[in-house]
């Protein structure tokens, strides 16, 4: 089925499940077209493995257009591969040299345990969002959308933070496996918008506490996360989160409340 003429040697992390130990295994990837995406190249390798009755290499993927955040892969020492500002599914084989050896590893972090091969469990991110990454409004009974004017610069900046796809590349890139960029993006987005103000001080405390509980490392402001983020989320978000956190902890009276307790029956 392959149509191209590029060949690669893949060194891939194989691990049966979370409880097994894993190792790097070498596979050839032959007749690869430069127009294939990196995942399509893996599809080709997997098809040939299945034909041989072997287990295909497992990796997470879904939308294959760079927005769902499901694909990951630490390729040649870089999350999402060598190109800036794209996800692995948007990475094409033309970005590699024919004959190259490509090392593929899962995200490495205590908070992201390996599920199988190259797929990791990123539910820690969900739990952080659940701890406070929302505005507590119920469906219905909200004011007209145009009742609160939001300056365009604020809306745009909040949008920049909101573009995070939750892929975890920031954690993978960080030498400390810190999740600060991810967490701060949500804290910033809601912290900047008027809708997020009522819970601003409580939210940041709750989300940071959950982040700590998940076992991510600490931020040392190296900026590797920002450089590797496929959506170019800025370090500025971390700064904003820090500011909000310290304000909340040291100068505000708000405690972490039970978010949205007004909901329920």
């Amino acid at each position: 089925m392959s149509t191209g003429n590029m060949n690669f040697t893949l060194k891939v992390w194989r691990q049966k499940d979370a409880n097994s130990s894993g190792k790097m295994v070498t596979y050839p990837a032959e007749n690869i077209s430069p127009d294939m995406s990196f995942l399509e190249m893996l599809d080709v390798v997997n098809e040939s493995l299945i034909h041989k009755g072997e287990e295909p290499i497992h990796f997470d993927h879904d939308c294959r257009e760079g927005i769902c955040g499901m694909c990951s892969l630490y390729i040649n020492g870089r999350p999402h591969g060598p190109k800036r500002a794209i996800t692995t599914c948007q990475l094409h084989m033309r970005s590699f040299n024919d004959g190259e050896t490509i090392t593929i590893e899962p995200w490495r972090a205590a908070a992201f345990p390996v599920i199988k091969d190259l797929a990791v469990d990123r539910s820690a991110f969900d739990r952080i969002q659940q701890s406070g990454g929302f505005v507590s409004v119920n469906t219905g009974g909200v004011p007209d959308a145009n009742i609160i004017p939001i300056p365009k610069v604020i809306a745009d900046e909040a949008f920049n933070s909101a573009t995070c796809i939750g892929c975890g590349a920031c954690v993978a890139a960080c030498k400390n496996a810190s999740a600060m960029l991810f967490v701060s993006a949500k804290v910033s987005q809601l912290g900047m918008l008027p809708q997020g103000q009522p819970e601003r001080w409580s939210r940041v405390q709750a989300m940071v506490a959950q982040m700590d509980e998940e076992g991510f490392g600490n931020c040392t402001n190296t900026g590797a996360c920002e450089a590797e983020c496929p959506k170019e989320i800025s370090l500025l978000n971390i700064s904003r989160m820090n500011n909000d956190y310290f304000s909340a902890k040291l100068f505000r009276e708000e405690k972490v409340h039970d978010h949205g307790a007004s909901g329920g029956e």
Binding site: T103, N176, F216, G217
Partner: peptide, 28 residues
């Protein structure tokens, strides 16, 4: 912090990354 950070990544990467961050920031 360093001990915590080491614990946060118990399995190291095989491929060494050339993360585009300043040398000093990575070697504090």
């Amino acid at each position: 912090l360093t001990v915590n950070n080491t614990k946060a990544r118990p399995v190291a990467y095989v491929a060494h990354n050339d993360a585009p961050a300043s040398w000093s920031s990575k070697n504090m």
